[in-house]
Amino acid sequence: MKSLIAIIIMAFIVCISAKTYAAPVIKIDGSSTVYPITEAVAEEFQKIEKGKTKVTVGISGTGGGFKKFCNGETDISDASRPIKPSEVDLCKKNNIEYIELPVAYDGLAVMVNPKNNWVDYLTVKELKKMWEPAAQGKTTKWNQIRPNWPDKELHLFGAGVDSGTFDYFTEAINGKGGASRGDFTASEDDNVLVQGIATDTLALGFFGVAYYDHNKDRLKLVPIDDENDANGKGPILPEYEHVVKGTYQPLARPIFIYVSKKSADRPEVKRFIEFYMKEGGKLSKEVGYIALPDKAYGLALKRMEKRVIGSVFGGHGAQVGVKIEDLLQKE
């Protein structure tokens, strides 16, 4: 009897299983920030390949992705920050060479509750006062940041400590990747942060600008002033032109994919990367990111064709205030 049921269920699966070929699989894993872009590219790529190639995308976070990538378990790694020294060493140990390709910009937006009527802008120094490790347990009131702000508690929300977003924000604000106070609400799920800030009038938090775009009515965006007139005077919002021109500093960052050199020689991976560099700009805009200038995609593609190994950041991890086309051109 049981076998009969098993046969029925199996038969059912067979009916709905698409006819399969022994198609090659491109394995991608890594950052949840880069995921929507890679997913969009993979979706369109598989449409034009018509079953010739399969693409899988996982979300292990930038760090988790590199661990698998440097073990030779994946072909491409999504990364929301450049590769770190420890990961460079791991890759070297396992003989994995990689090509670094920028795919888009992501602006980190600083957000408060819409009922917050005192914050008009923030300087990087003020952000540091809130987030630096020494602030833990000490900086707990809004009026400690600026004296004319209310004598009320300050509630902080931020990205989870395993994410590239957290690494970048702490590097940009506190000057050292990963250095931050620990007493804030951390979540890997940005919707949890949106929910937290939208329901707490005393909240302040940061996350990718894409999440602000879809929750404009529930959040208030804070302009940031880095007090460096060379890249834009006064407080600046993370809008398209400011991010691309490099004036929304220091909270705009390029995001990447890393391609294993061994995999790059496979024809389907090559086709995928070419497609990524051609359509990536348009698709990243569609899913809420800021496209690189066309020139940058061209330069990145050349990098791929010439098989330029290594990171333009020299393997030091997150770096603040870079325009990606300048770095690519230097090569």
Binding site: M10, V14, S17, A18, K19, T20, T56, V57, G58
Partner: peptide
């Protein structure tokens, strides 16, 4: 164990 998020194909049919 690394089950994936984006998979746009099915496991090979058993029959």
């Amino acid at each position: 164990i690394g089950a994936l998020t984006y998979v746009a194909f099915l496991p090979t049919s058993p029959i």
